[in-house]
Structure formats: structure tokens, C-alpha cells
């Protein structure tokens, strides 16, 4: 086991009265992809801004590549590559000019910049666009150029804030492959924030963050295994109907109904072989619900299980 690439101990940050982050601790294993998954406003961007050294935490500490930002800020900044949500490339400059600028302000010499830029641009499939101004690139290409820029200094850790926001599905897939490729070459550790379940699913480890707290941290499979069995989602006409229906299901079936939970206008049941339960449910409560759906637990189910509310209703 290698040392953790990122180590976070008890980080807290408030903006006025609102606690954006409270007592978050986690470790990210070197050479892996770590996804911070959470709803907007859940605290993941605050954590991201602290880790990228833009924001000072109120309390707690962190280290990246073993470096403490309080003592070795410049060294630490030299070891991270950061891709923000808002593009950090100068749109009036070409891709190559942007890379050169970034290399020079990061203290690389000209010859090294040229060779690194050439190899990165070819790896990210940007060579034929290197002399185009960034303002002429599509969203997916611009994001890849951002990544090329962030990788130019050969960082130990690549931090990305919502990297697939605004990208079409093809560009998303390409981005995912690019990141996986980097990590599997053993060169780098990736920490990204996301509110997209699919994107988190492709990570090695997921940190679920909600209301400023880290509510779980595990592999995608292990997280899903926490949900006991399969999931039935019973959709009703509204929240009051869902509550009364849940009560009646519980009275009628007792423990057979598995774990019951009312989430907004739905009743959710988690139990083994949940599909066998559907006929009984339909016969017992005709016309009381709009639909019932059956599925293996998803990350969204995990989120609901752990926080008691749906993803989009958070914070």
C-alpha cells in the first residue's frame, strides 16, 4: 500500500452562519480515482476549493503528496494540477500558447515545456488543434485542453471540479477514458467532484458528501451492497398519499415489506427478492399508486438510504 496521496483531517468551513463543511476527514489512495459525490450545495466545491489552495479552512488540516499547505504552500501548488469548473484557459490565446504560459509561470524551462506539451497534446488527441484559439474549441476539446494544461507540470494529484458539466455524452465518455488511462499508467491520483451518479460509478472510491458532512466512503460496489437486497419504488399522487400508503403497507405486511421509507411522493421498499412482493402489493392496494418499479440498488438508493432524502432535494 502506498501512502495516501491526499489526506484530510477534520476540515470545517463556514460562510457566515452556514456551515459548508463540518469536520470532514478522508484519505485518497495514491494511483486511484476518487469521486466526491454530492448534491449541489452539499459542500463538495468548498472542499475542492480548500484542497486546491484557493480557500482557507476554519479548522482542520490536509496534506497532498505529504506536503502541508501551511508550511509548504508553493511546493504543494507545484504538485497539484487543478481543473476548475469555469475555464481557466485564456480564450484569446491558442492551446499551445496557454500551455506555454502555464509552464512558464510554474517555473518550467522552455525546452521542457515544448517536449511535455507535445507529448500531452498527442496523448489527449489535441495536436491538430494546438494552434487554434481556445475560443474556437468545442466544450469537450476545451476541457481536454484544460486537463493538458493541468498535467503540464507532471502533478502527483489532479483535482477536477465537476469535469463533465456541460459536456455531451460522447465527450463525457472520452473524458472518463482519459482519466482512467492516466491513472492506470500509475502516474497520478485523480480527485474529482461530481453530482452525476454515472460519473461517480467509474471511480475507484466514492466519498458521499451531503450537508457539509462525509456520509460514506467506499467502492461503488460496496456502497451498493449496503442496501439490503433489491429496491421497489412505489410512486403515488403526492407526499401525503405516500405517507398513508407506507403506514398501511407496514400494517398489512409487517416485516415482510422489508425496509420502508417515504421519500417525497414515493414509498421505497428494500428487501430480498423484492420482485415477488409486487403482485401482493398491487392486489392489496388497487388504484392507490401510479406505478411501481423494481431494480437493483443504484447509487441514488444508497444516497437516500444514508441521508433520508433524495439527491435533488438536498440542502
Amino acid at each position: 500500500m502506498s501512502d495516501p496521496a491526499v489526506s484530510v483531517r477534520g476540515l470545517s468551513k463556514s460562510f457566515g452562519e452556514r456551515a459548508a463543511l463540518s469536520d470532514v476527514s478522508l484519505e485518497v489512495q495514491g494511483g486511484s480515482i476518487f469521486a466526491l459525490l454530492g448534491p449541489n450545495g452539499g459542500g463538495k466545491t468548498t472542499l475542492f476549493r480548500i484542497l486546491s489552495t484557493l480557500l482557507r479552512p476554519d479548522s482542520g488540516s490536509f496534506s497532498i503528496a505529504g506536503l502541508d499547505p501551511k508550511k509548504q504552500l508553493r511546493q504543494l501548488r507545484g504538485r497539484i494540477g487543478v481543473v476548475f469548473q469555469s475555464p481557466a484557459l485564456d480564450r484569446k490565446l491558442t492551446v499551445l500558447e496557454n500551455l506555454r504560459l502555464h509552464g512558464r509561470i510554474s517555473g518550467l524551462n522552455a525546452a521542457r515545456i515544448e517536449s511535455l506539451a507535445a507529448s500531452l497534446l498527442s496523448r489527449l488527441d489535441l495536436l491538430d488543434r494546438k494552434n487554434d484559439r481556445v475560443e474556437t474549441l468545442s466544450g469537450g476539446l476545451a476541457r481536454r485542453a484544460e486537463i493538458a494544461k493541468a498535467l503540464l507540470t507532471s502533478p502527483d494529484v489532479l483535482l477536477l471540479d465537476e469535469p463533465s458539466t456541460g459536456l455531451d455524452p460522447v465527450a463525457r465518455r472520452t473524458l472518463r477514458d482519459v482519466l482512467r488511462n492516466l491513472v492506470s499508467h500509475g502516474e497520478i491520483t485523480v480527485l474529482l467532484t461530481t453530482h452525476i451518479f454515472d460519473e461517480a460509478e467509474a471511480a475507484d472510491t466514492i466519498g458521499l458528501i451531503d450537508g457539509g458532512k462525509l456520509v460514506a466512503k467506499d467502492t461503488p460496489d460496496a456502497l451498493k451492497a449496503r442496501v439490503g437486497g433489491d429496491v421497489l419504488v412505489v410512486e403515488t399522487a403526492g407526499a401525503p398519499e405516500a405517507s398513508s400508503l407506507a403506514m398501511e403497507i407496514s400494517n398489512a405486511f409487517g416485516k415482510d415489506a422489508g425496509a420502508l421509507r417515504v421519500v417525497a411522493e414515493t414509498v421505497r421498499l428494500e428487501r430480498r427478492e423484492a420482485h415477488r412482493f409486487i403482485p401482493a402489493l398491487v392486489e392489496r392496494f388497487p388504484g392507490r399508486f401510479i406505478s411501481v418499479s423494481y431494480g437493483r440498488p443504484s447509487l441514488e438508493d444508497v444516497f437516500i438510504d444514508l441521508t433520508g432524502h433524495r439527491f435533488e432535494e438536498a440542502a
Binding site: 486546491s52 489552495t53 484557493l54 508553493r74 511546493q75 501548488r77 507545484g78 497539484i80 487543478v82 476548475f84 469548473q85 469555469s86 475555464p87 481557466a88 484557459l89 485564456d90 480564450r91 502555464h102 509561470i105 510554474s106 517555473g107 494544461k149 507540470t153
Partner: peptide, 22 residues
């Protein structure tokens, strides 16, 4: 600052003196 270029410069190892001087 709005577009993010400045954030990118701020998280690089560049010193405040170099940033202002440039």
C-alpha cells in the same frame, strides 16, 4: 476572475510579486 483564468494562476506556484509585476 470570472472566467477562472485568475484561479488557475493563483493555484500555480507563481508568487504575488511575479503576478503583479507581469
Amino acid at each position: 476572475r470570472k472566467e477562472g483564468f485568475l484561479q488557475g494562476v493563483l493555484v500555480s506556484p507563481v508568487s504575488p510579486v511575479s503576478l503583479v509585476l507581469g
